[in-house]
Amino acid sequence: MRGLVLLVLSALLWCAPASAEIKLGIFPSNDPAKLHAVMRVFAAELSARTGEPVTTVVTRDYAELVQRVRDRSVDLAWVNTLNYVRLVSEVPAARYLATYMERNEITGRVTPYYQSYIVAPRASGLDSLAAIRGKRFAFTDRASTSGYAVPNHLLRTHGFDPDADFSKVLFLKRHDRVVDALLQGSVDAGAISDGTYFTAQRNHGDVLSILAKSDPIPLDAIVSSGSLADATVARVKRTLLEMPADHPFFHAMRDVLGWNAAGFEVRSDAFYDSVRAISGNP
């Protein structure tokens, strides 16, 4: 018995250096290659500040990220709002660290909110929600906040039943793919984040009509899976809060992904209640 205890202890000791590497999981909101490129800057910052090596993982989809937080194969996770409310309800060990903030494209203010837009190609002449009834509609992913949950709710509040009132509903996984499909005419309307909309505007001009805008949505949250030591978590949290708005990471976010990244702040869990209400999660 003593031998077994020793064996377990030594195994734990042997594993200890491995736990020193911090793994950061990110949901696939964009092209994984681009995400990797940006998150490498973020990981470098975290690594410098915590003294631990940090690696990044872009998961196959939203569900995989939740699963990895649950089984602690990632230590930190950058989760979107919808997944955050699901995560904290499904994985009690998960801990909220901070909320990501963006500079609003229109007001110029840094806020922890963004919006979901229902858009259609301007060339199609579809300029109202009423006009897209019976048409082909694209969401991103059922686990997406601004690409599905919020716009789905938005449509329903406008009297739409997306399952019945569109000729076809397609799921294109990523926001940028929705823009591409809209521009190709493969779908007639779609739901995307405001950041995606402004990126498309920068890249393609004023080619999309905004048919509806959602209420402000709390932005992504950074959580820990519960695998890290408290001290490390504290160092991570401090690092996030202390990153200035002109940090190279935020520049990279803007330059590579088109997101108006501007910083992090700590909110309460109640900050996400508005999404909790439409997600069906307690």
Binding site: A138, F171, L172, R174, R177
Partner: peptide
Amino acid sequence: NALHGADNET
């Protein structure tokens, strides 16, 4: 499942 769920990306 992807076809059933109109999951274009998969």
